[in-house]
């Protein structure tokens, strides 16, 4: 016989949280919110969906009517969409855009380890903005790169591809160095799986260097949720001929660091990132690759042996 409800005590209705989970660079990030729209993922991120019972990062979505500017001196101003503040043991990222007026449209509050976060969205700013992807760039990238800066990995500015016969190749380069061009050339001549033409995550597993695709693609729009073991790293430069130059480790660390995304607001995070790069370059050699932007560059890489 079922128990009768006790008069005077309202029956608590459990709040059903909607969830979505992505895995980028081996880091699982779970998003939860009171309605399904709160956990909507962009097309690029949907490819990276991967449920994890114990995610590395948990993000709770909340809505407020309006966000006011965070008071206090910023720790770091990206010069673009976000500004970082410190509040006790929390980091606070405020996101501003001319599209939404002068007040923040989104705020990310995270623990210092970037294991848990609250993503607060402004109803007023986002009223006419649909669809909403709460984890939309750069929030997702900020969470994952700051998590990696604990010493477990690094995001690099690079094109990563997996040749069907020869395995993984990584080409690092600043904007305009030829990453998207490289991706397109290899696609034409070798039909590889291209993990990304702009952002790659590096991780170490038992002394081996692995690269992971990310949703944050470049102009050629390549993004795939895959990974591959690396045997070497290439630093791209434009050239009149295809040529490889071995880089001594000290210089290689600097070249890779110049093409990565460390947390500049955190000296400790920067130090751990440099240490990670050193360990990565203990595992694989690094070459400067001066390349000609045609099919001969792919052939040169495939034909190159240490």
């Amino acid at each position: 016989m079922p128990a009768a409800p006790v008069p005077g005590i309202a029956t608590a209705r459990p709040v059903r949280l909607h969830q979505a989970c992505v895995r980028v660079g081996g880091v699982s990030l779970a998003l939860s919110g009171p309605c399904s729209d709160d956990v909507r993922l962009s097309c690029e991120s949907e490819v990276f969906q991967n449920f994890d019972e114990n995610p590395d990062i948990e993000v709770q979505i909340e809505w407020v009517e309006k966000l006011q500017r965070w008071r206090g001196n910023p720790v770091f101003d990206s010069g673009a969409l976000w500004t970082l503040f410190r509040y006790g043991r929390e980091f606070v990222f405020d996101f501003n855009s001319p599209a939404f007026g002068l007040l923040p449209y989104k705020r990310l509050r995270t623990s210092t380890e970037f294991r848990s976060a609250q993503l607060i969205l402004s109803r007023e700013a986002l009223r006419n903005y649909r669809p909403i992807f709460p984890l939309e760039y750069p929030a997702d990238e900020l969470l994952i790169t700051n998590y990696l800066a604990s010493g477990v990995g690094v995001e690099v500015h690079g094109c990563g591809l997996v040749d069907p016969d020869r395995g993984g190749y990584l080409f690092l380069g600043h904007s305009g160095a030829g990453k998207s061009t490289t991706a397109r050339l290899w696609e034409t001549f070798r039909a590889p799986k291209i993990l990304s033409d702009d952002r790659i995550i590096l991780r170490l597993h038992e002394g081996e260097l692995w690269m992971y695709g990310t949703p944050w693609h470049g102009e050629a729009a390549f993004a795939a949720a895959g990974k591959a073991k690396l045997n070497r790293i290439h630093i791209l430069r434009h050239g009149t001929e295809n040529r490889f130059s071995s880089l001594p480790q000290a210089r290689a660390v600097g070249e890779v660091f110049a093409r990565c995304f460390p947390p500049f607001h955190s000296p400790a995070g920067v130090e751990r990132t440099v240490e990670f790069i050193k360990r990565a370059l203990d595992a694989v050699p690094c070459y400067e690759f001066q390349f000609v932007p045609d099919g001969s560059s792919a052939a040169a890489v495939l034909g190159f042996y240490e």
Partner: peptide, 10 residues
């Protein structure tokens, strides 16, 4: 690309 988000989405 993402250079103009959220004003212009990829």
């Amino acid at each position: 690309g993402r250079s103009m988000v959220p004003t212009i989405q990829d």
